[in-house]
Nucleic acid binder design. Structure first.
Lengths: 245, 245
DNA sequence: TAAGCGAACTTGTACAAACAAGCCATAGGT
DNA sequence: ACCTATGGCTTGTTTGTACAAGTTCGCTTA
């Protein structure tokens, strides 16, 4: 663990613990540099990390202030339903309801950088939290990863983790589109809600460390089961609003 | 504009223009440092900015690669419906349907750091894109900003901008919770949809540069009108999934 | 042919120094 | 009492250096 991560971790703990309550000022960079016996640049890296997590805000000339005290989850917990569920204390389960190979559509070819007509693997999964069906996942995997996906246990808890263990695949980057849709008849049947009732939809494309697209997916959450949370600031602005389709 | 921002801007333009297509490698830091006659640290700040926008990915030891080529909006465009609409080429309009002062609830007291029972301003607005009703906004303003809000034109296009111009208020930090809900009868009537139809809900709390909470809001978008987009990576992880309420 | 090794390249981390720019409280004057 | 100027404090930007750690690719060797 890098020095600046240690410092960030220490400060984060102090914030979470309440040593620096919301609205309070953080010590100055110079003071922190002395306290941790590190260069100012290293301290700046540490507080920049906290700022990117939305824990502290910063303006030129004034002391940094504490904005929040909630620890945010890791990328793994965002990307993997199972890992997220586990960290929240839920028990996740899931099952593959359908899985078939087919040629990719033209839009999929673009999103997964495939040749038109190249083969993809289409998987329909139902995910549960503590036994309650919560999420319908329609995932399209690029052909090159399909064999590894087909070897997975149909009731496999964490696809992400299994793929890492079996073929060393790491999901490194993701793009997510979030909107609301009405439940179709299949969605409604699987999630146990009425047709037309609101679902939170997350469409995503995931790529490897090398920038190679692995999968694109259409995930639909039952309303009330899951909320997405974003912190942003004039400095860091992850979330973007877009016109609907 | 700082040197590193100029460099970032130049590289971003090159990516958007297609000089570096998706999947391509960026020049090395050393090469960029020579090209821009800047120190390596400055170049690193520039590419770190692009990485935070999700445009490029980076791993130790390997050249940086291009992940996307879409320009992401600024914080202002995320926070202000009007500014976002304008940047997308739409014409935004809106109108205040109700506005009244009342004592705050206990949950509002916590979110806006107010004393229990302190007065807040409750505003109901309907927002339109090109004349089409798209968004129902229920905003609660902290008492100290209420007078400035009440002085606003009821049909004011951009509340954010007006508040900046009238009292110098800057919205600097925001926390957003996103989920899907069914339209209530008021939502349905205002948006011209059927009761129970899906809406994309964004609950947010906004604070000033000093970390002082200004408003909390419950915004409901008609399904299909707006999508939220997030890019993330193992390095930068803005988006977080949470259990529903 | 295939595995393994190593050298060159590239990004990550850390330190040090200097100046610019913005904030804030205090001292002083009106 | 209020307003302003000023100086000290704090964060932002930039440069330079050094080493650590990971990737890539070609060459050697079994």
């Amino acid at each position: 663990m890098a020095r600046y991560e240690q410092i960030a971790s220490d400060l984060r703990d102090a914030i979470v613990r309440g040593d620096y309550p919301i609205g309070a000022q953080l010590p100055s960079e110079a003071e922190l540099a002395i306290r941790y016996a590190a260069a100012r640049g290293t301290v700046r890296q540490a507080v920049a990390l906290l700022a990117s997590e939305g824990l502290v805000g910063s303006r030129q000339g004034a002391r940094r202030i504490v904005l929040g005290s909630e620890r945010s989850q890791s990328f793994a917990e965002l990307h993997s339903f199972a890992q997220w569920a586990r960290s929240m204390g839920y028990r996740a389960s899931g099952s593959v309801l359908a899985s078939r190979r087919r040629p990719c559509s033209s839009s999929e070819a673009v999103r997964l950088s495939l040749e038109p007509g190249e083969e993809v693997l289409d998987v329909l999964r139902l995910r549960r939290l503590d036994g309650e069906p919560v999420l319908v996942e329609r995932t399209v995997y690029a052909g090159w990863i399909a064999p590894a996906v087909e070897r997975l246990d149909p009731d496999c808890e964490s696809v992400t983790q299994e793929l890492y263990e079996s073929v060393g695949l790491v999901f490194a980057y993701g793009e997510h589109l979030i909107d609301a849709v009405a439940a179709g008849s299949e969605d409604a049947r699987l999630l146990g809600v009425r047709r037309g009732s609101p679902l939170l939809r997350q469409r995503r494309v995931t790529t490897t460390q090398e920038g190679r697209p692995v999968e694109c997916s259409d995930d639909r959450y039952r309303a009330g089961s899951v909320t997405f949370s974003i912190r942003n600031s004039t400095a860091a602005n992850p979330l973007v609003r877009r016109a609907g389709d």
